[in-house]
Simulated scan of single mutants.
Amino acid sequence: MISETGKFIVIEGLEGAGKSSAITLVNDLIKQHTGHAPVCTREPGGTPLAEKMRDLVKIADETDPLCDEAECLLIYAARSQLIANVIKPALAKGQWVLGDRHNLSSLAYQGGGRGLMPLVKAVSDACLAGFTPNLTLYLDIEPKLGLTRAAKRGELDRIEQQAIDFFERARQTYLQLASQDDSIVVIDASQTMDKVHQDIRSQLLQRLPLLHNKD
């Protein structure tokens, strides 16, 4: 059943990659594996204060446009709240945590997409102090396909309205970082949902026993 040490698993991907359905699947798999539902979080957000910061990041204000540096700092402020008040306390209790995005998103979006990698790395080092997920599933998709899917959900938010080259840079950063870190698993999200879920299930079930060995 559940290990004495909680685990932190994150789902990552560009807009339209299918994170929501993947999170539902992984939630069920973790529950089957541990006997308990994981604590689910999202970033930016996940606490009352962090959700207010999320609104500042997501909602465009033409009278006072959010500059790139402020966007980055707001996201790390929200992340710090979430880690301190939700994620670490849950892990300390032996609970598993399932995150909809984490620091890899900032490295890809603000670091790669915005071109702020030095700032992102500096703030990340200061705020996280080496704290990382046990496993990240990155759902990889070409930006044009992902944004087409996202547009079908309804009106796009401020981030989703960025130019295509922003997402191209973010994707390349995701892939580069994944190639350097064996705790990041790349899933081809351009496939049918059934095939994507099959791949997620296979990859996760292979790694769940290994996560226990990393206590």
Rank of each mutant, 00 (worst) to 15 (best):
Q95E: 15
R54T: 04
S106I: 15
A150S: 06
L104Y: 15
S183I: 00
K214Y: 11
Q81N: 13
K144Y: 07
I159E: 07
L119P: 11
D140S: 13
V185S: 13
A50E: 11
A170M: 00
L116A: 03
D194W: 06
L204F: 14
N213M: 11
I30W: 03
T173C: 15
L204G: 12
D61T: 05
S183Q: 13
D125K: 15
Y174A: 10
I9Q: 02
E69W: 08
A84K: 10
A150Q: 10
G94Y: 01
T173S: 05
F8K: 04
Q180A: 14
L66P: 11
A126I: 15
T192F: 04
I75F: 11
K7G: 07
H33S: 08
E43F: 09
D188Y: 12
P118D: 10
I87H: 00
P48R: 04
L208Y: 00
A60G: 07
I164S: 06
Q81M: 12
K31E: 06
E71M: 13
R54C: 05
L208D: 00
E15D: 13
I30G: 01
G16L: 02
G154N: 05
S179G: 03
N213Q: 10
T148G: 15
L135I: 10
A17V: 15
D125I: 10
E155H: 04
G45D: 03
P38G: 06
F8R: 05
R79C: 14
L119D: 14
L135K: 01
D61K: 04
A129S: 04
A126D: 08
A90S: 14
C40P: 00
Q110M: 03
L175H: 04
D61E: 12
L147Q: 14
I59C: 07
